[in-house]
């Protein structure tokens, strides 16, 4: 479960303090599929960074999967991140590793046994439709395929929550739709999915709950593909 209670965040800039989000509150229950939408600069990325504890909010309360993000110790951060998978617009794949190695990397990092990696990685690649590309390096893949590798890596440790920041930002409309259906299938298996996006058509087509942000404030929260 994700709970934001009256969360505010300011950044220090050369021209003084700039407010990124102001009094943001929402709750996302386990198993939900939610879009957080807004134009560029609305505060979506700040919310993502707060969720993955890359930033600490100035005020309010954030609870994710039982972790209190404003009060947690630094040594607890890896355990918070293990409970979630994260996908970025720019994929963040290691270019010198193969598709298999990129996905396996996430398991190695948390100390998974080799036997488990050997079983789990092919399963994940199959799930995202890349079983035949295991030994290929990312540069040889299309944008959509690279994003699916990133998705496989985000899900390989079986997180209960998937956070995707503009996952279709670099994809054409057809690939974007495919990616959304893939995320929907993953959600159907029980994973909570939170997607930050500004793509109106995509959001409307999915008909899911939408939390709309404008200038750092939640302006609407509801089901049915509504978007500003």
């Amino acid at each position: 479960m994700i709970e934001f209670k009256d969360v505010s965040m300011r950044y220090n800039t050369k021209r003084g303090k700039k407010r990124a989000i102001n009094g943001v509150s929402f709750t996302i229950n386990d198993g939900e599929f939610v879009f957080i939408t807004g134009e560029s600069g609305a505060g979506k990325t700040t919310i993502t960074r707060l969720m993955i504890r890359e930033e600490v909010a100035n005020s309010g309360e954030i609870t994710i999967n039982g972790f209190n993000l404003l009060k947690m110790k630094n040594k607890e951060i890896p355990f918070l991140r293990r409970s979630m998978g994260i996908v970025f617009q720019d994929y963040k794949l290691i270019p010198t590793l193969t598709v298999f190695e990129n996905v396996a990397f996430a398991m190695r990092v948390i100390g998974a046994p080799i036997k488990q990696i050997r079983n789990r990685v092919p399963y994940m690649l199959d799930l995202v439709g890349l079983a035949d590309k295991a030994n290929v390096v990312p540069d040889e893949l299309s944008g959509g395929e690279q994003q699916r590798v990133a998705l496989a890596r985000a899900l390989v440790n079986n997180p209960s929550l998937l956070i995707a920041d503009e996952p279709t930002g670099n994809l054409d409309p057809r690939l974007s739709t495919e990616m959304m259906y893939l995320l929907d299938r993953i959600n159907a298996k029980g994973t909570t999915v939170v997607i930050m996006t500004h793509e109106k058509e995509l959001v409307n087509a999915m008909n899911k709950r939408v939390i709309a942000i404008k200038e750092g404030v939640v302006i609407s929260d509801g089901a049915g593909g509504y978007m500003i």
Binding site: P78, L80, R82, I86, I110, N157
Partner: peptide
């Protein structure tokens, strides 16, 4: 990437 996937 190591940090994001929960490496200590």
């Amino acid at each position: 990437i190591m940090r994001l996937v929960g490496a200590k």
